[in-house]
Design a protein around this nucleic acid. Structure first.
Lengths: 195, 195, 195, 195
DNA sequence: GATGAATGAGTATTCATTCAT
DNA sequence: CATGAATGAATACTCATTCAT
């Protein structure tokens, strides 16, 4: 458990927002301090973090922790309803989660080249549990074999991610509204499972 | 038409590789010059490009031009075979194209925050034609209504992109081999279309 | 008389050791505090010293005070024995004293440029009394005239100091072991006095 | 042979003077640039040296090179005259050499703690050849055995160095004028050799 | 067309010192 | 007395860009 203080939290908030908006390198320590209410350039940040990079890591960790919390909550509302309903709920949940993690994903995408390991680890945490969780759900709901459930989970979740990636990572205008996207996605999956 | 010269091309080559590996800000003009065989730090680059940013734009444009060429070639091998075969070919083609554009995608993802317009424009060119092209193919092959074809194209292409994004953009280990991915994807689509 | 307290003394101990090892500028107040058992960076040092420089002065003063004590003790064992014995004892005593003050000399040498007055004063105290004392001893022992005794004392003491300076001040490997050095030095002096 | 340019030389000149006066840490890169006629803070220094430390090394090397030149010249005026004359000439030469290297010695003394190896190496070059050279001269002139010549050379040269060290290294007022110092030193040595 | 040299504007980080608690 | 937090001032080093040769 890392030490927590109001200033420390304010620094993380400010930093992650700025990292998301201008990238890690594009955000100066002075700007972070200013945005956190400290005197810019005075190095007050270093009373809370060893380096700018350390702050990035702390920010990512906080995001990931929040995510784990979300996942725990989720477990409670599974297992009630028919296939279509459950898939629709899952889709909505995943998109909501992606929205929640938009800032994090932008940062990770921008830093992937400069901090490969940091990014890989974070992304594996983000994706890994989603995939195995959804595969289990599919195996359970639709009676798929483990291997098949895995494959379907990967392809289907990928499609779901792609509903947000172009917009969040590349500023592209989304090609479909959420309702239509989810409906089509559910149909595709139920058709596959039924076949 | 911008002037072309062997040195100019070498600079673009070097720059795009370095931008892909270390990001735009992470790549100094001096390093680009060195990698292009010029004296680092002497500013020889400025005889060919007005600024570092100008060079980035030139690099992106060259990638996009190459892409258009690819697309033209593609038109020739469509329209022969049944649904499954054609979908499989399409999937393979899209993945190959993504591999071809990996460097570009990495650069675009990293710069999305700092150069929103530049990135949006490039990505729209990359995605736009794919989407309408594939929608048309689907309408044609499976007799879907234009709206429906659009929706299905978006979801299906998104799934396909997601076969590369985690690895190319986030250094994540791919969860599925290409063969399995494509097979599952084709099944999903044909099931949907058949239903 | 400055106030004395266990913490204050611990701070001086820590500081002088660190100053000797890394120089005054190379030693941060935070490191001194840490080495003295205080929280680093909390400024606890300032309850005992007005500034870092003040602490340096206090440390030097403590060293000089210790030296005076040594000198007093010394007076007791002079005046017994022939010339050679007495010179040998003197040589041993001076080298021992130099060893005792090694840390101080290192600090003084390093700070000579940045704090000229502080260093000059301290060094004058260190050298002055040695020189007049030894001159008196020589005049007494060997019947030299005051002027001549002064000159011989300066040259001879200088030779003695040079047995330690290269090693203590410049990390050079000593060129001679103490026994040989002292024997040669005693011979040189007695030859001169006898001539 | 390191590259040489007027600016590069001006930077070394400025740096060594400032290092001597305020110490290495006490001299900012900006101040060196200003003193060398460059814009302070613009980093122009880095077109000539990889780092501030690299500049220090270059400065020390230049001093040492100059010293070797001096030594070569010296060989020409040895071997003419009786013992006393030759010793007097040697003493004057050594003091002149020390005056020539005053700046260097001050820098070395100040940096001994922070750059032990750099200083040790330089000092070994400075002292080593002096010592063996003078020992040879003594063996030759006065017919001393090698071991004894070594011992006498160390003690005598140490005495000579001590004519400058207090003043140059510790700002102390010299206790003797050069003439008297040298005369006493010569007497001491000839007495020893004659005995 | 290429280069050596220069510069203006940063950029992360350090540090002595202060002060409310 | 000691500490957590803050700050003003520095500091070494980087870099995109310009320009005379």
């Amino acid at each position: 458990m890392t030490t927590s203080s109001p200033t420390r939290d304010r620094i993380i908030d400010a930093a992650m927002e700025l990292f998301g908006a201008h990238g890690f390198r594009g955000t100066s320590v002075a700007k972070i301090e200013a945005a956190a209410g400290l005197t810019p350039g005075a190095g007050g940040l270093y009373h809370h973090f060893r380096s700018k990079e350390d702050l990035l890591r702390a920010g990512i960790d906080r995001h990931l922790a929040r995510l784990h919390a979300l996942r725990d909550i989720r477990a409670t509302f599974t297992g009630v309803g028919d296939l279509r309903t459950e898939l629709t709920l899952t889709a909505r949940y995943v998109l909501a989660e992606l929205d929640e993690e938009r800032e994090l994903l932008q940062i990770l995408a921008a830093e992937a080249r400069s901090r490969p390991d940091l990014v890989r680890d974070a992304v594996n945490q983000l994706l890994g549990t989603s995939q195995t969780g959804f595969a289990a759900q599919l195996a359970d709901l639709a009676g798929l074999s483990p291997d098949r459930a895995d494959a379907v989970a990967v392809v289907a979740l990928g499609a779901l991610f792609s509903a947000r990636m172009p917009r969040d990572l590349f500023n592209a205008t989304p090609a479909l509204d959420d309702e239509t996207f989810i409906r089509t996605w559910v149909e595709m999956l139920s058709a596959l499972v039924a076949s």
